[in-house]
Design a protein around this nucleic acid. Sequence first.
RNA 1: GCCCGGGUGGUGAAAUGGUAGACACGAGGGACUUAAAAUCCCUUGACCUUUAUCGGUCGUGCAGGUUCGAGUCCCGUCCCGGGCACCA
Length: 1036
Amino acid sequence: MEYRPSEIEPTWRKWWIDNNTYKIENQGGKPKYYILDMFPYPSGAGLHVGHPLGYIASDILARYKRLRGFNVLHPMGFDSFGLPAEQYAIQTGQHPAITTEQNLTRYREQLGNIGFSFDWSREVRTSDPDFYKWTQWIFIQLFNHYYDHDADKALPISELEKRFSVSGNAGVRAVCDDDTPAISAAQWNVWSEQEQQLFLLKYRITFPGEEYVNWCSALGSVLSNDEVKDGVSERGGHPVERKLMKQWVMRITAYADRLLEGLNTIDWPESIKEQQRNWIGKSVGASMKFTIDAPLPVGEGSGFIEVFTTRVDTIYGATFMVIAPELDLVKTLTTDAQRSDVDGYIKWTSGRSEIERMADTRKATGVFTGSYAINPANGERVPIWIADYVLAGYGTGAVMAVPSGDQRDWNFATAFNLPIVPIMDSQKDLDTAADPSKEGRYINSERINGMIYAEAVPTLIQWLEEKGLGRGKTQYKLRNAVFSRQRYWGEPVPAIWEDGVPTLLDEKELPLVLPSVDKYLPTETGEPPLARAKGWKYELSTMPGWAGSSWYFYRYMDPHNEHEFCSKEARDYWQKVDFYIGGSEHAVGHLLYSRFWNHFLYDMGLVPHREFAQKLVNQGMIQGRSNFVYRAKERFFEEYLWLKVLQPYFNEEGAINISGPDFEEEITYDFAFATNNLVIEVTSIKQMDKIERIRRSALSDGKRLMVLYNEELTEQINEPDAIAEKIRRALASREDYIVSSESPTSEQLFVSHSLLYKYSPEAVTKLHVDVNIVEDDVLVLEKARAAQQFANSNFKLDAEGKYTCSWEVEKMSKSKFNVVNPDDIVAEHGADCFRMFEMFLGPITDAKPWNTKGISGVSGFLRKFWSMFFEGENFRVTDETPTRDELRVLHTCIKKVTDDIERMSMNTCVSHLMIATNDLRGLKCAKRAVLEPLVILIAPFGPHIAEELWHRLGHNMSVCDAAWPIHNEEFLKTDSKEYPIQINGKLRGTIELPTDISAADAEAAALGLELVQKWLNGKMPQKIRFIPGKIISISV
RNA sequence: GCCCGGGUGGUGAAAUGGUAGACACGAGGGACUUAAAAUCCCUUGACCUUUAUCGGUCGUGCAGGUUCGAGUCCCGUCCCGGGCACCA
């Protein structure tokens, strides 16, 4: 019986739905397992073959875990708020909810075709009010808490109010704004409600703050750094400016240390953890005061400059200071003698863009202020310079420069002839570069001379603290996260403003539903779109894309709960995500913010674990494989005429004279014949002006002009003879102006890539072509002729009559015409084949271009697998007792597939199933005892074929609830093994030995071999190693 | 510049210190067929030797090291991809 996936697959998909096969309960005697995919944003382009890679892998794992007796939660939903839908709404006026709904429907359909075991009754959508009600609720909780250092967790803001009213903020160690003043209880208590509320904002975990943001007035929105490319918006290319705006901000910095430490407790890819570590950017160092030793005007400045350093141990090498030119302090430090230099430099740097400043990092620029500071360690006077390699925005905007240890400081010192003092006995070649080594012992460093790094740092910090000159300090790169978007399509922020104080809605008033607006643009006065909503009295900005995704994994546990974001029973049952899979592009966005929210929810006692996802795997991106076609330019026709017509047909006459290698010459003619005054001009029929101009010029030159239209050449492109004949007739004629009277219908010519090596690159335009009308890089002409892109086109084919395309690997996207829809693959080969082929491509963590070469291998395998069960039209599985060989094949396969699923090596699983199938077909095995376990083994990969065969084997229940077979070592044993024999590390032969042979016997047997004696060449072996089950190794 | 990954046949890849290239694609040859498709069988890292077998040399970016034995571990180096970037 033939294997027909198009018949069996839809049947079983319906059966699964009808039987609620994938519906999961929050209970049961089984252990739980929670497998989560990063949910997709439903874009208008639909699902492409890259999306399901991770879903297939997780589905295989989910089905496997279920077969192993786990209660598996494997849900799917949609991150359905976002900018693309809003952009589309702006263009078309259509409500984003409508387009989002359409996209969602398409995604559901496409996902439905692949046979996933998702429990769709648990689907969530972040744009659904029933969902974002709880996003808003969590926002309110964040507002109502502050971070207490002593408790090292978030505490209710009411606690803080109590403490303020009793003892002010003196004893409070909490995360707050930098500019928070000290207040007494008396002050707090006399404050008005409004004053108290404003003060509390300095402590709340989410608060309205002033932040520099990337403001794009054209989009009416603030953009994240990665939405800005080269100073303009990635989407639309609009200008972007740095602007100080009132924004809701999340005090994620409060959690910096815990987010960093938590990384050590989770099984995530090292690269993701490393990116998060870099993003958090903890640097442990010291801050120090350099007293200013200058004739400062009385009362100006604090009298010292504070610096932060991660290398306090290098302080004795600090021979000068550098401060950022933007700092106000520069004015006071500048002496009269230096004033004009300094002013000039400041003027020059302010005119330089960020990009320029980054571009020439090699050349040190800067100016001496004329003032000095005292190095607190050795009391030496060091000059204070300004230079733009020091950034005002980082730390204090001042550095102690240690030219022997820091390359930028070294460059600067070398350029301006400042002293370079070695501080470590291990530093080398200080005349050519800095040496930042921490190895060795200190020199020229008084107090720490002779110490090593680990001794020097605490010694110095202790000394600085005793003297009041500095202290140990930890600094983070992490900034608080801006949480407002001046956009429409996002969660409304549940806040009302009154007298500059935000009040949040009561829980009972949630959800605050997104109102209707007439347009999705900012107002004329630059307010966000929500300002257009009638009667809207709430906050005008909405939440960012990462709001809903920061907690959605809990909603799946209890998706329809109207009273809580997720019930306690559900949280207690599912605990956390056991296995999370998604793209590494979310490394520091989603994955850091969701960890932050989870820590907060943990502090509130709402979730059972500090980290929500124990294990994370990144699936590699499936890239697109774009195809390109080449459209002829005028230049191409000129070169074609020369190469294919004039040279072959007229050279022998010696009668032509070409205007030279520059085909683009405008004044003279493209080709001129020495005889009969004939000149030829090649141009488009559309260029009537040009033709007229040339005609007049030919007339005055006394030349006879022949005009060949690109378009007529296009039609005759495969008949150079005909064109030659035309020219021959023109040569022979006496007419002054020869031009085709017929008007050609072809407008464009596309030239096969295989022919292009003869032509110059400027002769053609390279264009993307839809990969769906290309097969094996050859354009399918029937399909191409029907395509819009090739209307009124002709093709120049190669000698084999083919139009070949070139290709490149690019991101898969609609604009590159390289999107492959999984539906098409499923329709052609079946869902099981599609699933297994995606896995067979290679390790899921690797990025790879989509290429269906090789899909026939998987397709053929499934047919072979199927055919084991049939003899003609009959199901032929028997109850005979299997042979040892058959059992060995089966149990080897069980072992390998089981091991490989556990380590997510899905590609090799497919290989092992292929091997077992090939072997069993060789043995002509059709025995139930072998084939039935094999059906269970294939079930996670090809659920449809497995379900079909499972039922044909006589079962009524789904194969999903079968028991995963366990391999029996007994059947893997063989009586003998072929041992490789290595002599001096080289493989020289093999020997068949009994499995249970003793070392002595094995050695003797090996030495008895003729081939071994040959290599020994009469010598005695120095050593023989027998590694049971592996190898025999002989050294001579 | 710094931090992560990764370099293996014509291609996708496999090999968790023990026979490098499993499995598959592609290619070549053959069987079946009126023919084609489908299917099945054989060969397929490079080179040398041989009628063929047998056999040998080289081979996992490059160059070293550890080891009886290295694609795998260590040191150096080059190249490719990703991330961060005058971050003190």
